[in-house]
Design a protein around this nucleic acid. Structure first.
Lengths: 176, 176
DNA sequence: TTAATCCGAGACAATAAGTCGCAGCTTATC
DNA sequence: GATAAGCTGCGACTTATTGTCTCGGATTAA
């Protein structure tokens, strides 16, 4: 029996895609990995692929730019954006460019699958105010994004010490 | 000369809409305020209104539910979601339900106007990003306001130590 | 009155941030 | 292809900020 679905995973983290491919296989979902901009556009021509999990951080290249390119070739494709460093700004932009959803790592395979069929039952009607740390993290991500991941430039723009920014990023990427 | 645009502002904070209406008037934009779910749906029938600024937190009612209702009556309406405390989850849901953008308070009138015409290429024409301290201070003020100046409650909501909040407020009040 | 809650603040330990320096790596520029 | 400039990660040290515990006094509700 052939798998019921076929996904494309676009993420420069090869270890991550390896694990995910195996996990999806257990759910009877076939998946192909692409680790950069060019090979993603190449792979997506395969018509049996209906869904795509797209990381925003492609080792220097922008997943946000890739998103409309993918949809131009395959207007019917369902693209779910999955990113390590999420922010409201990139979430809004991703949705505007045609993503069906936007999730932050780490996620379970179940969450990922459900992410393609968002329920109408609304997540949080009354969002709790984010803690100052969450707020800070959002803001750092936004500015870091504006500066193309340049840590020194971001630290200057944020008026904070480079060493401090470095440590914050470090700690955050370890735990999340 | 009649104003070039007419907006509907949906926000339960009357002081906020008052100020905003005056600011928009200076930009030659007329605006009408609605402070709850029902009156928003009533006011939106006016055909001269083309744009809507929608707060998500309507004193118990959900702006997120209101959004599709507004668009059902007026499919051509441009709705910009503006919320006190934003989250990725609500941002994604708002965009999915047809918002043209999603911004967090506080914003300037210029940011609001530009928010209705999001640029494709994300040009460099943006105001300097606020430092993390400015960002934090704004957020603290917002949540403090939300809790009627109750420091203990604010500290709990912000997941920070009361003593720390106390010291931050102290230091800041000395400078201003 | 009693109990609960909030507030300001002192004191000290734990944690985080600022500072300096260095080596390795890219990326322009000549 | 050598030089220079910029970015990065990280160790080590000093300084600043937070967390924690603790009062006493003020305010509020039962």
């Amino acid at each position: 029996m052939p798998p019921k679905e076929h996904w494309l995973l676009v993420d420069d983290d090869q270890a991550f895609t390896q694990v995910l491919i195996r996990s999806l296989a257990r759910q009877d979902i076939a998946a192909t990995a692409a680790h950069d901009y060019a090979s993603a556009l190449e792979t997506i021509t395969a018509p049996e692929i209906q869904r795509c999990v797209l990381d925003l951080n492609l080792a220097g290249e922008s997943g946000l730019q890739l998103l409309p390119e993918l949809l131009k070739q395959r207007p019917d494709l369902e693209v779910l954006v999955l990113t390590g460093y999420g922010s409201i700004a990139t979430a809004v932009e991703a949705m505007r460019r045609g993503a069906v959803n936007y999730l932050c790592k780490p996620v379970t395979v179940q969450q990922l699958i459900r992410g393609f069929d968002p329920v109408e039952g609304e997540p949080e009607l009354r969002p709790a105010p984010p803690s100052v740390e969450e707020m800070e993290w959002e803001h750092i991500q936004r500015v870091l994004n504006e500066h193309d991941g340049n840590i020194s430039a971001t630290a200057r723009a944020l008026n904070m010490h480079r060493r401090t920014l470095q440590r914050k990023l470090q700690k955050h990427s370890r735990w999340r």
